[in-house]
Nucleic acid binder design. Sequence first.
DNA 1: TCAAAATGGAAAGTACGCTTGACATTGCTT
DNA 2: AAGCAATGTCAAGCGTACTTTCCATTTTGA
Lengths: 68, 68
Amino acid sequence: MNNRLEEIRKQRGIKQEELATALEVSRQTIGSLENGRYNPSILLAFKIARFFGMSIEEIFIYEEDENA
Amino acid sequence: MNNRLEEIRKQRGIKQEELATALEVSRQTIGSLENGRYNPSILLAFKIARFFGMSIEEIFIYEEDENA
DNA sequence: TCAAAATGGAAAGTACGCTTGACATTGCTT
DNA sequence: AAGCAATGTCAAGCGTACTTTCCATTTTGA
């Protein structure tokens, strides 16, 4: 799973810390997602999508043979 | 998180077991999702959506104040 | 240039998604 | 009514999402 989090966050001119606060998660969680250390839960993915006014699919990129 | 899994699966006339096999998860996982015992990982949500040719948002319903 | 702000990332702990295995219940079909 | 198919559900175990704490590195701005 790739994602466009860092790109979208920077477009909006907000800091990791600000995004984290808005989403009610830790700053490290945002950093970990941006750097691909792990994938978000589906709840967090929904919160992120809703925060940016986008769909989950526009932000998180699922590659067909992700884990086969 | 509510979801329309059971409804959509039955529309297509397929069994839990068949869906499980197609998605490469256990039958119990499908049952647990349909009965709301837990939410899917985002990877499984993507696989489900892709299998049904729908978006994640069309299948999984996120309620605003899900976890305060 | 130098300090503060922003980000990167490790470690240890908790919660949950998912597995296998087993058994109970419900729903056909005859 | 009986028997099999489909579904419900529990328990134990494993991996990972997320937390807090802490420290290192990079970026920014006066």
